[in-house]
Amino acid sequence: MAESERLLALADDALILGHRLSEWTGHAPLLEEEMALGNIALDLIGTARGLYQRAGDEDRLAYHRDAPEFRNLLLVEQPNGDFAQTIVRQFLYSAFAAPFWQGAEPADIAAEAARQSAYHLRHAGEWLVRLGDGTEESHRRAQAALDGLWMYTGEMFEDRPAPLRAQWDETVDRTLARAALARPQSTYMQSGGRRGRHSEHLGYILAEMQFLQRAYPGATW
């Protein structure tokens, strides 16, 4: 993948996931979680902006590409669902992002992203433990979320060095054990996001996100 493609893919991951988290505004289960999810969303949008700016014009890239041109993972465009689904999605992604950004390029963006991802991982991980080892209902929801999102995890490691996968496995196994959750056994993995083959969800995300720019072409906001 060319350098700009590589940056775009990472930027798209961050933007789409940040956008999804921002959808929780006003709906979070507690006020403290409005803060936490908002924080994570802001961090991700900040990372996206930094990466887009390296690749070109941030708003042209975010607002004027259609779905087949986006290179984000399928995982990040999945719906928020209930809180368990959001936490599982975040956990699975951040467990990849935190080690990924360590020592990655561009160095300045990567250092900040690594630090932030470590906190996102801590937050999502601790919630996953509390949901898995909380009540019967929270356990059921967390397991269902994990079972549903598992097939999107393989894509994160396509064309990536093996140690990254090993580190992710270790983090996941350790947290699932504390959370009393079962690691899904299925090995079939969905793929395509990195090549512009997305799920039906991305179209709706972009329609909402890009509306104003598309409806008023050339306007400054």
Binding site: T25, L31, E34, M35, I45, D59, L212, Q213, W221
Partner: peptide, 28 residues
């Protein structure tokens, strides 16, 4: 919060999200 997902630039999106998050903090 109604307009975060439709904010017309990334800068506006981030600023609006930060503002709304501040409001949650103020509530706290």
């Amino acid at each position: 919060g109604n307009w975060i997902t439709r904010a017309p630039t990334l800068k506006r999106k981030a600023a609006l999200l930060a503002k709304v998050q501040d409001e949650a903090g103020h509530g706290l």
